[in-house]
Design a protein around this nucleic acid. Structure first.
Lengths: 345, 345
DNA sequence: TGTCCATAATGTAACGTTTTCAGTTGTCGG
DNA sequence: CCGACAACTGAAAACGTTACATTATGGACA
């Protein structure tokens, strides 16, 4: 019967549905569904027959249909400023690990550090009926909340000012304290800080300042914008205005790279003359010369935490914000000062 | 009537559908659908009324329903080895740009540079009925092709050996030639190459070697594995075995960072004594000291090309592989040699 | 024999959309 | 006043699945 062959080829072409399998194995579609979701009891013989047919037709249950009726998509929306920044990449790695374990997939959208595209990104994701959402470094605060129907809760990976209880954040203040203590411990006394706009940097500075106050010291400060160029610039200011600086805490690794460069150019040895501590422990930290001591953000762990938080939320549980402690990673850019090479003027 | 209130709250809770909008604006669901797809002519007044209601109810057409009936998901699957590597991040940025313009979203999966998880990643994406797929640096060659039902075509961003015509790749050989020409042009004559496993590195070396042969020169070589440590190691070998090397071409920027470090440690000035050219022009290139001259992969452009290729494929058109030319980005690690500081022994 | 129960299977109604087909108007030329 | 045509609208049939309610089929038990 050539018709049968032709028709079966055709049906194979246009993606075979549950009805086809049901028809060919002589059961109802409901039974086929049960076989694939092993929910209720199904006669082993029947199950066998169904599975056989399914195999033959290369049938795969469609997520679309399933999700439509279940009201779930097994998708988790993720909004990231960009993907080229390694710290975000690490977080995504952590998120993926948890989600993969749970059989969920990541729907990715980029916010470009921009409120408008953040908003449209959220809408995009929502249209796909994501079950949950994680947003990293959202610019939208409490004032303009993200769209969120059906009781969907966004998990924010960001510092406190976003106001949501569904939050994973780094204890930036503790990071600043860590940096200060390290420098003080090394015997440095003429400290400086290079900051950047935003809450994170302010928190880092607060911790740093608190420890210095406690030690009865003051510090110089310069302002950058997280870019390498601004680090060069800031270091220039610090060194010119004020002759004697023997340690610099920089609010970001990229800026720290700039600071190192400025020091090189002035012939100041690191760490002998000036010690430098960065922040984030981005991938570049260990590639710089000398290798940069930095305050590490456990980005991957923060990613897994955010994903787990989102899953818990999805299960209807309550959650609490999670705060991660930063960690000092000691490398070559810090060490004891050398008397001889201190900045002389 | 409290019941009404309760029920209306409930329906508001559980996501408003096209029916609700239709009912409240006194038209049929078909008309609402038409308004949102501006397919057929709709009375401007009616359209207005519908849009008003939709706005009031915060109605968003559900992709699920739409895709179910259309047999499309407006999803494009993307498989990447990892996201922490900036080059991939840039590509993703390019892909997102094109896709966003087309209203499609990215379903992300990680292959972890591992054939098995690459395969399961593909299955994951397929279950979500992605319309197309892009896979970056796939390990699966022709031998074990990716699963691909319904005439779905994977676009590969990878060198030629994957065999598929749906491909975006970099002309690695041209990159090698570029590096060689730059060094020769600077008057360097004692060249070396640091390679890594895999086709890419081999192609880069082939181009490099071809230009040297043409100039009647030979070169030293050492082998690494793209890691910074292996760069340090390789540079060590080159400098010890062979006293006189005045230029090193390194098949990857991370390794180049290692080479720079080894040179620093030996007190060899870059570029005066030894010039260094990296490959990829990763973000770190411009952060190293000195800033690294590198052969740039136009990663973002390759991403957009891959996305466009995928869209064209999706539209049923035929496509050809696209090859991108690399570009030399000149920075501080190359320059004319200085007689005085050449390696003396 | 009749009742009850467990098991196995089935039928049908959703889910939220788009699309096709079949209207219903209203307008205009003849 | 008729017919043709355009503009607009609505009903209903998909799409692939699950959930709910229901129906057979036996067997155990009183």
């Amino acid at each position: 019967m050539p018709e049968l062959t032709v028709s079966s080829v055709l049906t194979a072409e246009r993606s075979v549905g549950i009805r086809e399998v049901a028809r060919l194995s002589g059961v109802s579609i409901a039974t086929v569904s049960r076989v694939f979701n092993d929910a209720a009891a199904v006669n082993p013989e029947t199950r066998e027959r169904v599975l056989e047919q399914a195999q033959a037709l290369n049938y795969q249950p469609s997520s679309l249909g399933r999700n439509l009726v279940r009201g779930r998509s097994e998708l988790l929306g993720l909004i990231v400023p960009n993907v080229a920044f390694p710290l975000y990449g690490e977080m995504i790695g952590g998120i993926e690990e948890v989600l993969g374990r749970e059989g969920m997939s990541i729907l990715l959208a980029l916010s470009h550090d921009n409120v408008d595209s953040e908003f449209t990104a959220a809408q995009h994701l929502l249209r796909h009926a994501v079950d949950g959402g994680i947003i990293i470094n959202s610019r939208l605060g409490l004032n303009a909340p993200l769209p969120a129907p059906r009781g969907l809760n966004w998990v924010q990976v960001a510092p406190e000012h976003t106001g949501t209880p569904h939050r994973v954040e780094l204890d930036n203040e503790a990071g600043g304290r860590l940096a200060a203590l390290e420098m003080l411990g090394l015997g440095r006394r003429r400290l400086a800080f290079v900051g950047a706009p935003g809450r994170e940097s302010a928190d880092r500075e607060r911790g740093f300042a608190a420890e210095l106050r406690r030690a009865g010291l003051i510090y110089r400060r310069a302002q950058g914008d997280y870019s390498e160029a601004s680090g060069v610039q800031a270091a220039g200011e610090l060194l010119e205005h004020n002759a004697a600086v023997d340690a610099v805490f920089v609010a970001g690794d990229l800026m720290a790279a700039g600071v190192l460069r400025a020091l090189h150019q002035r012939g100041l040895r690191v760490p002998e003359a000036v010690a430098v501590v960065g922040f984030d422990d981005a991938a570049i930290a260990s590639l710089l010369y000398p290798r940069l001591t930095s305050i590490r953000q456990p980005a991957r762990a923060m990613g897994t935490a955010a994903a787990e938080l989102s899953l818990r939320l999805l299960g209807g549980h309550r959650t609490e914000p999670i705060t991660f402690p930063p960690e000092l990673v000691r490398r070559e850019s810090t060490g004891p000062p050398s008397r001889l090479s201190a900045r002389h003027f």
